[in-house]
Amino acid sequence: MSQLEEFETFMMNYQNMVFTTAVRLLGNETDAADISQNAFLKAFEHFETIRTSPTAGGWLKTVTTNLCLNHLQRYRNRWRMFSELRNEKEDESSFESDLAAEVPVDCLGEDERSILEKALARLPEAQRVPLLLYHFEDLSYEEIAARLRVSVGKVKTDIHRGRDALKTKLKLDAEGEPVGLRVGS
C-alpha cells in the first residue's frame, strides 16, 4: 500500500472526529472544513511518525483543537480592536432572544440530540468553547483559563451560563429528563 493510500485510510478513520471537533468549537461548518483540512495537512507532514502511533487520534484531536483556538483567538483580537459596538452582554441577550424564538412549546416531536447540537452551535463563543473544552477535552478550569487567556472565574461563570442555557433549551427538569416527556408519560 502506498503512502497516499495509507493516508487516505487514515483520513477515513478520523475525518468525522476531526470535523466534529472543529465544527463544535467554531460553530461554523465552512470554517470547520478549512480547519479540518489544515489539521490533515499537518498530519500528512508528520505521517511517518504518527502512522503507527496508537495515540494518533489524540494527537490529531489536539492539533484540531489548537488550530480552532488559534483561529478564534485571531478573530477575537480583530473584534476587540475594531469593534466597540457589540459586547458580550449583547451576544448573550441575542442568544437568549434566539432561544425564546426557537424553543418549541412542546418538544415531544423533536430529536433531543438535534436540539442539543443546534443549541450548542448557537451558544455565544465565550460559553461554547470553555464548555466543550471542559466536557469533551476533559480540561480543568485552570487549564481552560490558561488556554483561553482569561481568568478562572470567567471560565467558571461562562461554563455555568452555557450549561444553564442548554438546560433551558432542552427543557430539562432536575433529573435531566425532558419536561414535556415527563408530563406526557
Binding site: 487516505e8 483520513m11 470535523f19 472544513a33 479540518s36 483540512q37 440530540r113 442539543l116 466536557h135 432542552l170
Partner: peptide, 21 residues
C-alpha cells in the same frame, strides 16, 4: 449536561474534505 453532551454522535465530514486535502 456532560452526560447529554457525550451522547451526541459524531458529525459527518463533508464529502469534499478528502478531495480538498
Amino acid at each position: 449536561i456532560g452526560r447529554k453532551l457525550r451522547t451526541l454522535p459524531e458529525r459527518k465530514a463533508p464529502a469534499s474534505l478528502r478531495a480538498n486535502v
